[in-house]
Structure formats: structure tokens, C-alpha cells
Design a protein around this nucleic acid. Structure first.
Lengths: 193, 193
DNA sequence: TGTTAAACACTAACCGTTAGTGTTACGTTC
DNA sequence: GAACGTAACACTAACGGTTAGTGTTTAACA
């Protein structure tokens, strides 16, 4: 079943809003642009904008569900008996590379410049950590305590912001994941292949 | 130099606002109470309220600077050559016990019920982690990389929220700190006493 | 074709927060 | 102890994100 015209129009409207927002934000700065400006630029009503995005900050972190799903996918979609932490490390490398790419630099500079955006990012990580903890718990099927699952998930999600702000992000991912691996070894009583 | 009347009055006003806020929040729920309600209950102007508290959420986390200072103190104030992680673990035990005490239960129930408060708490932890990372880096004097310091600090601060939500918070602190200790061993090349 | 639901628009407001402008009362200095 | 500077506080009015309420168009589907 191909997406109907309705869903295509909806997606188009969403994209039009996101594009307009990013353009204005990068032009004039995040704080200097109002919701009403974005709505006018995208030629939609303010209420329509909020039907597509839950908040002003969400306009910037448009594809954060990707992030959540890719982490969970790294857990559930890995080869059978493949070790967990290296799989997460590989995915984190990709995610960090993606957001430290040249084209993304202005966006992240904007995020770092706004406390509202940094706070929103942090609250996103909370969700991501919960989702990842659920994926890990389901995958390991009671081999770990709930607390251990949530702890490992939180550490992994933390790695993203820590690495992003490091001088050499890719090296930082490796450094942090060595620490996560050690924490993991202590937490998991069962031996893995 | 004893605090003059001026400072005492200022502190009294602050306390009067905080008390009024907490009373109303617990009575009617956080979201159901407006800033104007709190100001009226404390018999001050709205602008006065914001002169004492940076935001509505800050009314709830009145003594969060304690938290920050106690963690840093646990690092800088420990006995010479005393190991770092156990000192942090002891302090975290105390902090978690404090916020899981009987009297604090309604407050934390209120926090858990409000996404605005949970997000604010998360952004507080960011600050706390930065402060702790600075304290650790200063204490160890270049024995660790910046990334390792920040990573350990983040893990320690995470322990608070993770433990608070666990079924047995005190046991969770121990469990999480076993993992942190392992991460720490891997990060620190130098041997400690 | 007609029904239904979803997308979208518009107005008007709510609420946290701040700017602007005074006024009072304390601490300080002569 | 009188005068000055400053910090606390008050008041009004607004700004900006967000939502409620209401109605209109449009597409999916029977």
C-alpha cells in the first residue's frame, strides 16, 4: 500500500515547515525567530505548525526518532550471539560522525548557543535511554537487573553528547566505550560468546 | 560579620515564596498553580518572585546548589590519598537517602508527575556533572583525559536519578557504583593507593 | 455519492517571563 | 545623624510559546 495523496501532502507540509524553520533559525538565530515568523514563512497557520511539531525546539531536532530507533535497532538487529556493546559502539560511531559532518556544523553551533535547545536535547536523551533500556532488557531476557539495563542504556546515550563535545569525537567514542564495556562486564554475571 | 537586617529580610522573602509555592503545588498540583497564584499567596509581586527564583521550576528545586556543592566537596574534601569513587559513592548514598526519606515522597511524586519538572531536573544534572567534572579534573591534575573526567562525572550524576527510581534505591547505588568503579579502573592508567 | 475523519485556518486567549519605571528601606559615609 | 547610593520590592504592560474553541476544506472509503 503506497502512501496516499493525503499522507504525501501531510509529509510535504511538515517538511515545508521544517525547512522554513531551519532557514530562518540559521539566518537570524534561534531566539530571534518567533513561531509566528516560522508559520508565516512556511505559509501555514500557527496551529498547523503545532499539529506537526510539539514545540519550537522540536523544529530543530526533527529526526530525533531516527536516533532512538537506530540505537534500538543496533541491539535487536545484530547478528545472533554478537556481543552487545561493540554493536552499540559501531552505531554510536555512525551517529556521531553524522552529527559532526561538515554540513551539520552550523546547526550544532546554533544548538550549543541556545540553552533552551540544549535542555531539550537533554530531555530527548531521557526518552532515548528509556527506549534503549527496554530494548536491552528484552534482548537479554532477564540476564540483567532492571537497574543494570537502565544504567548501561544511560551511559551509552551519554556517550553521544560527551563525544560530540570532545576535540576528537571519534576517538572519544572509543574511549568512552572502553569504560562502558568495563561497566558492562561487571554488571553481567553471565558470559557472552 | 553577621548578616544584616537587609540580608535577613531578603532570605525571609525567599523562604516565604518557596513555602507558599510548595504548599500550593502540593495542594493543587504543580501545573494547576500559576506564578501569579504563588506570588499572591506569598504576598509579593510577580517580579519579586522572579528576582529570587529564575523560573517556576526553580521553586521546586530550591536547594539544588547543595547537591552540586556536596558532590564537589566529596571530591575535594576527602582525606589525602583516599580513593575517589568510594568517596563519591558514600556521598551519593547520603543524597539518595535524603530524597527518598518519608517527608520527601510527596514532592518527588509531584516531580515525577510533571514533564516540565523532570526536564528541569535533567538540565540541572548537566550543570552538576560539569561542576563535578571540573572538581575531578582539578583533583587529579591531568592524570585523566578531559573526556574521561566528564564521562565519570556524568555517570556519577546519572546514578542519582537511576537509584531514585529503583525499587531499592540504596542497593541500586551500590550496584551502579560497582559499574562506575569498573569504568574508572579502565580510564585511569595510574594506580591509586 | 455520501459519510467520516483528518488536515488546516482563524481568533482569542493562557501562562511563564521580562522590560520599564518607580518607591521604599537598608547600609554607608561624611 | 544627615545625606547618598544601592538593593529589594511593587506595578503595569507587554512579549512569545502554546492551546482551546470553532469552522472549513479535502481525501479516503463505504
Amino acid at each position: 500500500m503506497p502512501p496516499g495523496r493525503r499522507e504525501r501532502k501531510k509529509a510535504a507540509t511538515r517538511q515545508k515547515i521544517a525547512d522554513a524553520a531551519l532557514r530562518l533559525f540559521l539566518e537570524r538565530g534561534y531566539e530571534a525567530v518567533g513561531i509566528r515568523d516560522v508559520a508565516a514563512e512556511a505559509d501555514v497557520a500557527v496551529t498547523t505548525l503545532f499539529a506537526h511539531f510539539a514545540s519550537k525546539e522540536a523544529l530543530v531536532f526533527e529526526q530525533d526518532e531516527d536516533f532512538e530507533q537506530r540505537l534500538a535497532q543496533a541491539v535487536t538487529g545484530r547478528a545472533p550471539h554478537a556481543p552487545l556493546i561493540p554493536a552499540l559502539r559501531r552505531e554510536m560511531h555512525a551517529l556521531v560522525r553524522h552529527c559532526t559532518a561538515d554540513g551539520a556544523a552550523p546547526i550544532w553551533r546554533m544548538i550549543d548557543a541556545s540553552s533552551a535547545l540544549r535542555e531539550y536535547e537533554e530531555s530527548m536523551r531521557l526518552r532515548h535511554a528509556e527506549a534503549l533500556a527496554a530494548a536491552i532488557a528484552a534482548d537479554l531476557d532477564l540476564a540483567l537487573t532492571t537497574t543494570a539495563c537502565r544504567t548501561i542504556a544511560k551511559f551509552v546515550v551519554d556517550a553521544h553528547s560527551l563525544a560530540r563535545e570532545a576535540a576528537d569525537p571519534q576517538a572519544a567514542v572509543d574511549e568512552i566505550f572502553r569504560m562502558i564495556e568495563a561497566a558492562w562486564e561487571v554488571a553481567s554475571p553471565a558470559r557472552r560468546a
